[in-house]
Design a protein around this nucleic acid. Structure first.
Lengths: 239, 239
DNA sequence: CGGGTTTTTGATCCGCCTCAAAGAATGTGG
DNA sequence: CCACATTCTTTGAGGCGGATCAAAAACCCG
């Protein structure tokens, strides 16, 4: 998993290109707001449960999460909800913008959130003048495809137990990459309802499966923390 | 949906960059083979049911389908199969290469197939010297994300009937873009088993749902063709 | 402490799966 | 061009995983 956020690439001036940190920031400071609230500096603070980015924000910005968990969401007209991705600190919301034809995708804060909004339109960044940004974008793109493919397989061909195991192990791996996991114990800032919406289950059933895993001694969890007690057994579920 | 295949961008020399049609082709003529068979010219012919591209082909090639249908597939160790994308003539197999960590993704021919293999590594193409290729790649990327998001919502939160309707309507739209559809009638080169593996169903259930739709006068289909008789009703299913 | 949110648990139901077998379409070799 | 094998589709009967409905318990925060 790619850990260096885009932020790194633009926080200082880039010697070989016209990408200036100041310029980048000012794009956002000057003219953008987020649901009516002006963005202060580069950092955007969002309360848990808030929707904070809608489709068709201008200029194709990249949002990097600095603390807290976020998610991208697709709503169906009748209220059904599908979480498309869960985003941890250090990761980008999506590398391709949120755009879709019907503008039905938005981003939501799973917990209190700090994130960082960067103007990084591919057509600007990929101009060849800033190779660094270019490579980072390509890597982010690959990671995001990878993540979506995994989720597709989970939803299409795995049981509820496998999906939950897959999710927990994936989060553990990403938290370890962040240095946020200590002997299998790591932040887990997501409600069961959101977990269910990510994995195509009901909250009730997600609860049952997780409780079974707890009873079996595979995991331990409280409101905001997860502990993997038997990673091998959890991996075995994925056959 | 993006229709101009990458092929277009490299079939002639590009005036503003070092991308030479000849060079691109020769990369593949010289050193690549596909499951042991040397690639003849740019065009690769594949029989239905054959796996024709595995993960970790060198140089991150782009495969453009010229005729027939293809799919990308992920296999689970126990034999379960998930089709990640269905690719029609004029479309690219994927813009990000097939790579994943565990090398479990491959491509399969849903029907007899002709495709075209192009060396178009992002790190080469995105050098800024060939803006044309650059834009095309970005567009392909966005289309592919779009497609995967739609499928994710289908698998996570839609019923079997909705999934089938969604699939048929999506294919119809893409075939129309190709000019391959005539008053709702278009090629449908996919077996029910593959359809089921794409939509997370069993072949038996896919058959039942499609038969119901036929009985209801919504669609009509034979082995290799689909006709949408009542597009409005089909759209209504998606609520 | 009190009100709201989140999680757990139980009972029942239904959509889709599994198993099975027949029927239709397609391909193949003589 | 027909006989036969193979692949694909349809249909039926029955079972199960996860959904739904409902309510209590636990947790959280002001």
């Amino acid at each position: 998993m790619w850990r260096v956020p885009l932020e790194e690439a633009v926080k200082d001036d880039c010697a070989q290109c016209e990408f200036r940190a100041g310029r980048v920031c000012s794009l956002w400071l000057g003219e953008s707001d987020c649901l009516g609230k002006p963005i202060d500096r580069l950092v955007l603070k969002v309360k848990a449960r808030q929707t904070f980015a809608r489709s068709r924000t201008p200029g194709r910005p990249v949002v990097v999460v600095r603390s807290g968990w976020a998610a991208t969401v697709h709503m169906l007209p009748d209220g059904r909800r599908q979480i498309l991705s869960v985003v941890l600190p250090g990761e980008t919301l999506t590398c391709a913008g949120l755009l879709d034809e019907e503008m039905t995708i938005s981003a939501v804060a799973l917990s209190d959130l700090e994130c960082c909004v960067i103007e990084a339109d591919l057509s600007v960044a990929a101009d060849g003048r800033c190779r660094n940004l270019q490579d980072i974008f390509a890597q982010l793109c690959r990671d995001e495809f990878q993540q979506m493919r995994r989720r597709l397989v989970d939803l299409g061909r795995r049981t509820s137990e496998e999906r939950i195991a897959s999710f927990i192990l994936d989060i553990m791996r990403r938290q370890e990459a962040l240095g946020a996991a200590k002997d299998g114990r790591f932040p887990f800032l997501i409600r069961q309802q959101d977990l269910a919406d990510a994995l195509g289950l009901t909250q009730v059933h997600a609860s049952r499966v997780m409780s079974n895993m707890r009873r079996a001694g595979l995991i331990e969890f409280s409101r905001n923390e997860m502990a993997v007690l038997d990673a091998d057994a959890l991996n075995l579920i994925l056959s």
